[in-house]
Design a protein around this nucleic acid. Structure first.
Lengths: 193, 193
DNA sequence: TTCCTTACTTACCTACTAGTAAGTATAACG
DNA sequence: CGTTATACTTACTAGTAGGTAAGTAAGGAA
């Protein structure tokens, strides 16, 4: 037998990929089980219901976000690498299987999502907005950015833009993503080299 | 018997609503038929496959877009009402059942959409970008708008932003939408009264 | 009056969905 | 050595998905 969490991790990896590629209603336990070469019930062993799977995925995203941003949130630092990191992350996710934002995918099915999943989604979004707001505030204070309006509104807008852009890029290709990055940089007064 | 297209129209209305509320994989023929009080096969009579239904919906959107924008595209005019019209349309759609952009919904399921539907989606998006690019060009020329960068990149960005914002508004409420409208107006140098 | 078209219904099909109950091989624990 | 927990498999369920074939009631045209 493999280590404690080997299969479980593989399930989550594949589920994350499928969520981003086909949406929450667009994949089934069978898609995962056939890919891993196990039976359907093996998935149910690790994640009794699809809700449990969704919760595990969202919690993992939340953890990743915290790990990636905690240093900046605690001690501050240069804002530009934070922003460029977001662009790079977005781009790499898209290039790896034309993946859209998992929360974009979840928002489509939002109305028939169980309440706990909605709550977790809401919390993730709040954290994202808080982080980006801070990045924008710090960046403006340090003269790295130069934009008009409220940092928190600007943060909401940028996150919405990236979520939409990843979806549009599926239809119109990666250029869409590059155009949007370029335009955000322009609007923030970042060097576009 | 009703008129030629009465049931057909009702099917398309309900399908459009369901597409925007639950995504393309999130509703079934049964959802439509029970709502209309007809049998499942009646839907198949009008739209043999779900692909046919999707095509009909997209073609309808395309037609509506053309009707709404043809005058401006042909003769020009004030850009501000065009922009505000887009905001109002977005808002009214959201308020009517927390509807997200149908093309956002379709983009999630894009990978298992039949080629003809993908083509139609692509064409709709292109038309939207062309229209908004023109609005931005005209608006800048007429000093209604004042923004940096390329009008077509800015158009892509605004459409991506609105698509993302409609989805985020589902999770974080209508304020998200208002914040994004306000921020777009700010960035375009529009009067925010 | 007969025939054809329109707009359905009834009855069915296969495939797939999430989910469950019971059994089994393996490894670790005491 | 026996017990217990882990990590599954086998075999199943009820419900739903999109889709089809055949029948039918009503209206219009010849």
């Amino acid at each position: 037998m493999g280590r404690l969490t080997d299969t479980r991790d593989q399930i989550m990896d594949k589920a994350a990929e499928l969520l981003m590629q086909r949406g929450f209603n667009g994949f089934s336990y069978r898609d995962i089980s056939t890919h891993l070469g196990v039976k359907n019930a093996a998935i149910h062993y690790h994640f009794p219901s699809k809700t449990d799977l969704a919760m595990a995925l969202i919690n993992e995203y939340q953890q990743t976000l915290r790990n990636q941003t905690s240093a900046f949130m605690a001690y501050g630092g240069k804002a530009t690498p934070q922003m460029e990191g977001l662009f790079m992350f977005t781009e790499s996710q898209f290039c790896m299987g034309r993946c859209i934002c998992p929360f974009g995918a979840l928002s489509v099915d939002y109305d028939d999502l169980p309440p706990e999943v909605r709550g977790a989604t809401e919390r993730f979004m709040s954290d994202s907005v808080k982080w980006l707001t801070r990045v924008l505030e710090v960046g403006r204070d340090q003269k790295e950015f130069n934009f008009q309006g409220n940092p928190s509104e600007q943060a909401v807008m940028i996150l919405a833009t990236l979520q939409g852009a990843r979806q549009m890029a599926r239809i119109h290709g990666k250029e869409t993503l590059d155009q949007v990055f370029h335009q955000i940089r322009t609007q923030l007064g970042m060097r576009t080299h």
